[in-house]
Design a protein around this nucleic acid. Structure first.
Lengths: 360, 360
DNA sequence: AAATGAAGGTTAAGCGTTTAAGCATTATGC
DNA sequence: GCATAATGCTTAAACGCTTAACCTTCATTT
């Protein structure tokens, strides 16, 4: 009932001025050791919680960040949100969510709404191929290192490279890369990496799901079994979502994974470890990405709000690429020559999940 | 540059008092038609955007809601977040996210943090089996109708009932229900529904993934192929996540879906429509659930903040159950007698996605 | 011993909004 | 034609916090 205690309650209880209490709590002004302690004790006793509204009004900072995702419905969103929330929370910021519902115009509207709500800065994971207009506030963009204006991102290209190498080591010489459509920088980077790995060492063809669906309807079969018959021994999807689609389609067609063909994904979505076979994939270090994005944002905020041209953020601004981590599970294996499903225990395998005691 | 215009800027520009401008904008006090219009015009001209901080300080309402999810990493979270954000946004509220990282104690901490941040109310999708402590603020709980203190939820039991009937209609008389563990009200409701449908008409056994993993390690095979040999013709998972696990395990074991057995899920997760076979599942009406939760919350807030005993919210408080929707796709089909994979075109099928032109 | 400085406070203004109370001015009732 | 009411606006206080400026007191320094 007793509506929250405020500074003046503490001040009154101790017979000092509000300013002193404020100083004591923030450690800024000049307050004697003892009085400081006494004030902090009283504060705790009264259950004092600073009013963010009051502080915001006074300082002009809300200590709230906005998080705008191209498509909140994307399965990777939870990981993002969790990581961002955690990093922001550590830094004393709250996170306000904005949904751009996929379309570009709505994305700007979402950003504006967050700003009107007083967000000090915005983290944007943009829609494929979008450029973020220069709003008059600090922004951190998480897309891909090859996107202009990008702040921090996973090193998708190198992730692709590693994935390609992984498949090459297993003996694969003909891979089909599965992507959605060509206007995503993230996907393009991953694809470029895989191709680079295969350059001169094998054949890498490309399948755009988007194109196939445009002509054959969404959810249509991708004709992967046919590719297997043409000699493709591995499918490298640029997202676990597509890898899952590939795995089920192949299995339904009677193709055995990984004995007949290997399938790999990207992102380590939540189910990647529990499907059969569990999925070899490439994981982003969300925690680090979030941490850097938030650090950059806060640094921008502290350096004085809405500077036009970004100036002198030393190592921060400018293309941080965070390494990705290859997670080898069951869906990728050595090329077996298409007839003899012998043992294939040579490759080190991860358990389905970190807490597993029995790696299947 | 020009830091946002405020009320007094408008007042000065028009030679009136701030109070009048405030009244004109809110439509509350007494302002003449003409002056009102003039003020609103000027406001638009100056690009006036009300300061939420100022308003919050003055009114004691932040117009921000907190959203706490038991586990932000859950694949259903995006749908929740999107729906809640949308509903809140329509009602003029922002949404602050809080992550309870799965554990119960962290859940309370998350709630407290949101409250300290000034959230006017909280939407909680609680951890299985958690009771939300009475914080001194409006709360809306979305769990299951059988949870005490629940505000609104999908009618999981009836969803289970419908799913069971669907399988019965297809001729299935022996189903295995797949759940994670028994301390989730949502899962229990769904299971109870399925069982009710099968009561007296067929056999329904139960598989807890949690128990199996405790002894055999996480990600372990569930032994579903063995059950098929024992005569089970359908697997009804209480979540798409488990359905996916079942589908891949069965496919890997050479069982054909839906010719040999049917598999169904719950929640219509994002990939349910694109795997092969696409997944028959039961969808919640998130939009409505979110709408009702938000409406309830706002009503509580408007009725005067922290009332102890919830009083006279008429139809709102008290167990709103929102019907679920059965989505029939490819993974469920008629029992075929285990040998003759004949045609099975009698059942009406959904396209993989609403925009599909070719239902595969 | 006077000037200087630091230490430990206090006062007061300001952030942008809302809202109760006050005060003219004009309309209404009888 | 006078009390009453409604209308249209202004004044002023309040919300809770921060921060610059100011004022003592006491310890140094010259």
């Amino acid at each position: 009932m007793a509506s929250r205690a405020n500074l003046s309650d503490i001040a009154k209880a101790l017979g000092v001025s509000v300013a002193t209490v404020s100083n004591a709590m923030s450690g800024k002004g000049r307050v004697s050791k003892e009085l400081g302690r006494a004030i902090r004790e009283k504060a705790k006793e009264l259950g004092y919680v600073p009013s963010l509204a009051g502080r915001a009004l006074s300082t002009g900072r809300s200590h709230v960040l906005g998080l705008v995702l191209a498509d909140i419905g994307h399965p990777l969103f939870p990981q993002f949100a969790q990581a961002i929330e955690h990093a922001a929370s550590e830094a004393g910021y709250g996170v306000l969510i904005g949904d751009s519902r996929g379309d570009i115009e709505a994305q700007s509207r979402a950003i504006n709404r967050l700003i009107e709500r007083g967000a000090d800065g915005i983290v944007v994971v943009p829609r494929h191929g979008t450029c973020i207009a220069d709003i008059g506030r600090p922004v951190a963009v998480i897309d891909s290192p090859s996107t202009p204006g990008n702040t921090v991102a996973a090193d998708h290209r190198n992730g692709g490279l590693e994935m390609g190498r992984h498949l090459l080591e297993l003996g694969h010489r003909s891979v089909a890369i599965i992507g959605l459509h060509s206007d995503s920088n993230v996907q393009n980077d991953r694809i470029a990496g895989i191709r680079e790995a295969f350059a001169g060492k094998g054949e890498a063809r490309l399948i755009w799901i988007g194109e196939m669906e445009r002509s054959h309807g969404s959810g249509c079969p991708l004709g992967l079994v046919g590719l297997v018959e043409e000699g493709v021994t591995a499918f490298a999807a640029v997202s676990d979502l597509h890898a899952l689609r590939a795995i089920t389609e192949l299995q339904q067609g009677g193709v055995s994974i990984p004995d007949d063909v290997s399938v790999t994904g990207f992102d380590d979505l939540i189910w990647a470890g529990v499907i059969a076979p569990s999925l070899t994939t490439m994981r982003m270090d969300m925690e680090r990405i979030a941490e850097i994005a938030i650090a950059d944002l806060i640094s921008q905020i502290d350096q004085g709000g809405a500077r036009d041209a970004s100036s002198d953020l030393p190592a921060l601004k400018g293309q941080s690429s965070i390494p990705m981590e290859l997670i080898i599970r069951q869906s990728s294996g050595p090329v077996l020559g298409r007839a003899a499903p012998g043992d294939r225990t040579s490759v080190h395998r991860w358990p389905a999940s970190s807490s597993a005691t029995d790696p299947v």
